[in-house]
Amino acid sequence: MATHTRYYTLRKDDLNSFIVKLSRDHKVVAPVSKGYGNFAFAEVTSSNDIVLKYIPTILPPKKYFFPQRETILTFSTGRGENAEAILEHEDTVIFGVHTCDLNGIQCLNIVFSERPRDYNYLGRKDKITIIGLECSEYCDKDASCNLMNSNFPNGGYDLFFTDLGDAFMVHVNTQAGEDLVENANLFKPASPEQMAALYSLRDAKRALFKNEVAVDRKDIPAIFDKSENSAVWQKAGEKCVGCGNCTNVCPTCYCFDIADTMNLDLKSGRRVRSWDSCQVEPFARVAGGENFRSGQAERLRHRYYRKFRYSLGKYYRFFCTGCGRCTRACMAGIRLKETLAELVKEAL
């Protein structure tokens, strides 16, 4: 596939026509309001319900690649082998994905491409077209996307939209993106003035976004190497209620559980996989009742190490995108930026 580095523009007034057209041939999902300042990706058929200025949705777009619950196999219990793998995917366009969530999807792509490859995930990924949307300023104070290097576009999309006021700058990154642009018949090549506007928006961003925790990104692994026995974990562990919200809303958490369920005929059934969370009691419990991570402080520490230390050894990247969801979703008020700041302070 050729690499495309083309810029188009779409007039803001034409966004609705674009979404309406798209939704004729694809399922289109985009951020919509859930009330109380919360948002969620949901199906849309016009631009009316789409919120362009939104804080990260309750669940990240990973739910379209790796649903909360999915049937992966159907079986019948008679004689002989009788099982059928289920691969369900639907042609979907995700509109309005922030750069932090693009980063999250890239993390999951790596994980689920490892052997044995996960065909349920990869099959869906093949059918999903991603349209990114740039944040020109911070969504809120809980984000740490500059620290995690995910506040600027860095691939992982088909099209990428930047709001320039009366028009969107649209970067085409793939053939699938190019096709959407061509079929829509609404896009125009970007003018030099519009390109200049894009560059000045990026300059303004560089001035606005600063590391949200006073630390150099490359020092984080060494800080974690020193922090295994930090009092920070005990302190936060006391507050943590073990609800699992922080992992369920995290764009890079991918643990799952698998269970079989019988149908009412008692002769056939299905195998369902669902998201699991390292923060809940049964996660590390094994037959016989032993629990390998029985304390909440250990569980909490484990989550942080999965984001800031272990993934570097395994995948050479942080598995935190700085989206801030774990902070927003924590009713106990455990805030990622604060935890990191305390670790930094201790390690210095």
Partner: peptide
Amino acid sequence: YPVCVECKFNENVCMYERGAACMGP
């Protein structure tokens, strides 16, 4: 595991964000 897990699967706005105390956790 707590009700919060299913609540998040359903992508509800948390009751604590709506100012109500919930026994989910």
